[in-house]
Simulated assay, not measured.
Amino acid sequence: MRSVLRHVVWRLTLASQVADYRAECLSCGEASPTVHDRNVPGGPEDWVLTHTGAHPSHRSYRAVTISAWRTEPDDTVGDPPSPCAS
């Protein structure tokens, strides 16, 4: 059996321009609803203010943005890079 191997460069791109957003309370771990756009009424920003209003000592939050990535072989490259000679 014969095999042909070649060097392949991989490219990382966004799979979609759409991202998901949510907030997480660093004091208790509760999280806002996940939304698919920024500045949505009742979204993470509003949830943080409401949560702090209900729990005045909870003042630290993590903003989470979730996006999908994909990898693709970059077939536009030429010859594989040559190893450095010492």
Rank of each mutant, 00 (worst) to 15 (best):
P73I: 11
V8Y: 05
R62N: 10
V64G: 04
Q17L: 03
H7K: 06
P56Y: 06
S82W: 08
A15N: 07
A54H: 07
A63L: 10
W10M: 15
T71D: 10
L49I: 05
A85M: 09
N39R: 12
L5H: 07
D79S: 15
S3T: 06
A63I: 05
S60L: 13
S86N: 06
T50V: 08
T76P: 02
A19V: 04
V9T: 15
E45R: 06
D75V: 13
T76V: 05
A19R: 08
P33C: 00
A19I: 00
H55I: 00
V8Q: 14
T34G: 02
G43W: 03
L5W: 10
A19E: 07
V18W: 01
I66P: 02
Y61L: 06
H7T: 10
G43N: 02
A63M: 12
I66E: 09
S32L: 02
H51T: 07
V40I: 08
T52P: 03
V64A: 04
A31W: 01
D74N: 15
T34K: 09
W10I: 04
T50W: 03
R38Q: 11
T34E: 10
W69K: 13
W47E: 01
I66G: 04
P81H: 13
G42P: 01
T65N: 07
E72W: 03
D75A: 14
A15D: 13
T50G: 05
L14D: 12
T65V: 14
L12A: 11
V77G: 01
E72T: 10
V8K: 04
T52I: 01
C25T: 07
G43F: 02
P56S: 05
G43T: 02
S16T: 07
A63T: 09
E24H: 09
S60P: 00
P80H: 10
A85D: 11
T65Y: 04
T76Y: 05
H7M: 04
V4E: 05
T71C: 15
D79Y: 08
H36F: 03
E45S: 11
G43K: 04
V9L: 13
S60F: 06
S86H: 07
R6V: 05
E72I: 04
R22Y: 13
C28T: 05
P80C: 08
W10E: 15
E45I: 06
Y61S: 02
S32G: 00
G43I: 02
W69E: 12
P44L: 01
Y61T: 02
M1K: 08
V77L: 13
H55G: 03
H55D: 05
W69A: 13
V64W: 01
P81S: 14
D46K: 00
S86I: 00
R70V: 11
P44D: 07
A31N: 00
G78Q: 13
V9E: 15
E45M: 05
T34R: 13
P41G: 01
T52R: 07
H51P: 03
H51W: 06
V8F: 08
C25P: 04
A15S: 14
V18I: 09
D79L: 15
Q17P: 01
P33Y: 00
D20Y: 11
C84D: 09
T65S: 11
E24Q: 15
Y21C: 03
W10A: 08
D37G: 05
P81K: 14
E72A: 13
C84V: 12
